[in-house]
Design a protein around this nucleic acid. Structure first.
Length: 242
DNA sequence: GCGACAG
DNA sequence: ATCTTGTCGC
């Protein structure tokens, strides 16, 4: 009964069944989209921030590609990891731009359920609001867990910005606009380095999300959360049979 | 119709 | 995402 304490702590609404095809996936996004809160304000002084990432293995199979998810929780005071968990599985959904969450969410949730610490904020690889239907991975993850979540993507998906408005210094940013709507922010985390694309997922506003992303990226382009999660997910994949 | 397309 | 050598630079 008490085998999943974290599950209750995070109020994860584990899907009884994941979509099996694109039509079902699109319908689910439309149904969940209204549940995402993009106003926050969200945690102003979070103690624990979790970074999530998924690595892919070559081995195919009738059940799908091998995937390894990793969640690394950092203490914002020291930027040192306080807990890290992993989970491996077979991706049951193919990679379809716009339906990316259905490929990574199952295994990410499996990993999150192993966490004993409840993160104050979730930072994932990919988009949140900056999505064609305004419901990227970060939104889905936030709604499902009930935790504040934001997306930090390495490349843009939807939206454009004014290059002239984006400074070259660390901390500079420009609004990411799509169809006349601000869906995120192009943020320079390191002077003279390519920017990252931040968008809200759930329970946190854009300003707050960007503030935390910048604080978590003191030395490299990507925040420490995603850097550590990326490394851990790859290690897990290797030690599992790639 | 054509190309582009988070990871 | 992943497949992959060397190379330029701090």
């Amino acid at each position: 009964m008490a085998a999943r304490p974290t599950l209750q702590a995070m109020r994860i609404d584990v899907p009884h069944a994941w979509p099996r095809d694109e039509a079902e996936a699109l319908a689910l996004q439309d149904r969940l989209r209204p549940l995402a809160d993009h106003h926050g304000p969200g945690p102003q002084r979070p103690r624990y921030v979790a970074g999530l990432d998924v690595a892919y293995g070559g081995g195919h199979g009738a059940e799908g590609d091998t995937v390894a998810a990793a969640v690394v929780v950092l203490d914002t005071a020291t930027l040192a990891p306080v807990e890290q968990v992993t989970a491996t599985a077979r991706a049951a959904f193919p990679y379809v731009p716009g339906l990316f969450a259905f490929r990574e969410l199952p295994v990410l949730i499996e990993a999150l359920e192993k966490l004993s610490v409840t993160p104050d904020l979730l930072l994932c690889d990919g988009q949140g609001l900056a999505h064609p239907r305004r419901f990227g991975l970060a939104c889905h993850l936030g709604v499902v867990t009930g935790l504040p979540a934001a997306g930090v993507a390495k490349t843009p998906f939807v939206g454009t910005w004014d290059p002239a408005a984006l400074g070259d210094a660390r901390g500079s940013s420009a609004p990411l606009v799509d169809a006349g709507e601000t869906v995120g922010r192009v943020l320079r985390t390191q002077t003279g380095v390519k920017p990252v694309y931040v968008s809200t997922g759930h329970g946190v506003d854009l300003d707050t999300a960007c503030r935390h992303v910048l604080a978590l990226a003191p030395a490299y382009r990507l925040p420490e959360t995603t850097r550590l999660a990326d490394r851990l997910s790859r290690d897990r994949l290797t030690s599992w049979g790639a």
